[in-house]
């Protein structure tokens, strides 16, 4: 390597001349930190405390929760349904986000609007729309009947819940995937083609791996939001699709049992953290790490 000129090891591109020192700039985050402390950490601490102290100090709330087969079934169902919702969202969002990156400017604007409009409608309104669509005499079953097919039970089933939640949560999957896809250099596909890759192979081996950070981000957001979803399962679901949030609501608001409600919240929180810990290494891909300083 002696023939290498010196310039070879210099980093390309200059660094910003002046960057705020993190230590000095820490106070910039103060308002957000204060707000989080007031509205999140404090109440959370109270809930955790009450789950261990009401009606009397001890683990009775947790023993009750895990002792009941119904509760365990609901916990499991919450995770399974959230998994289905995540999968369904991904299947819908991936091609949609890809389309957003390849279409012309005008069509892209329309596609982005289609993603954002649901954000401007409340979740209740959207869920009620799904009630109208899914109910036994609803639009979908009317069409099925019109086609001479037998109607299917959608409302108050797990399928109905998954459909409704997928639609409500879809933007949270589309947007992270789109933002990653937007940054993928499609000339890499041309390079792969020149090296001998068929178009679909270039897509699977180059494009898809590069889009995965967006997929992981979207999947984690959708999954975690699904775990705590309340309105949609409550309105579209039946007794056999109850999710954990409904149980919490029942304990806290109907039975005024803050201890048991809090315990269920803590279980959900811990489960979420465990999941994040598992998923974190996936998101930390080698090439997304910052360039090594020399």
């Amino acid at each position: 390597m002696s023939a290498l000129p010196q310039t070879d090891n210099q980093t390309a591109g200059g660094r910003p001349a002046r960057r705020l020192n993190l230590r000095d700039a820490g106070w910039l985050a103060a308002p957000a930190v204060l707000l989080l402390a007031a509205v999140l950490v404090y109440p959370l601490a109270i809930i955790v405390l009450r789950s261990f102290s009401e009606p009397e100090p001890g683990l009775q709330n947790y023993i009750w929760f895990f002792g009941s087969p119904v509760n365990r079934a609901v916990l499991q169902r919450t995770f399974v349904l959230s998994g289905w919702v995540t999968l369904a969202s991904l299947i819908c969002a991936y091609p949609y986000a890809y389309a957003m990156t390849v279409v012309g400017k005008n069509l892209r604007l329309i596609l982005i609007l289609c993603v954002l409009v649901p954000f401007w409608l409340s979740g209740v309104v959207r869920t009620l729309a799904w009630v109208i669509l899914l109910q036994d005499s609803g639009v979908i079953n009317s069409i099925l009947r019109g086609l001479g097919l037998s109607p299917v039970k959608l409302i108050r089933t797990q399928l109905g819940v998954v459909i409704g939640m997928t639609q409500v949560l879809l933007p949270f999957m589309i947007l992270p995937i789109y933002s990653v896809m937007k940054g993928i250099d499609t000339r890499l596909l041309q390079a792969a083609r020149s090296l001998g890759a068929k178009p679909w192979r270039a897509f699977l081996q180059i494009y898809v791996p590069l889009s995965l950070p967006g997929v992981y981000a979207g999947a984690i957001i959708v999954f975690i939001l699904s775990l705590g979803f309340y309105i949609t399962p409550a309105l579209l679901g039946g007794p056999r699709s109850t999710m954990l949030s409904s149980l919490v609501q029942n304990q806290v608001l109907s039975l005024l049992n803050w201890g048991r409600g809090g315990a269920m919240g803590v279980v959900l929180l811990v489960a979420t953290f465990i999941l994040l810990a598992i998923a974190a290494p996936l998101m930390r891909q080698k090439h997304t790490q910052t360039r090594r300083e020399k």
Binding site: D185, R187, L188, Q190, A191, A192, R193, S194, L195, G196, A197, K198, P199, A202, I206
Partner: peptide
Amino acid sequence: SHKRNIGVVFQHYALF
């Protein structure tokens, strides 16, 4: 292009 068996080097490197 994937059947032409030609090496191509781009200005923008295009490494994966």
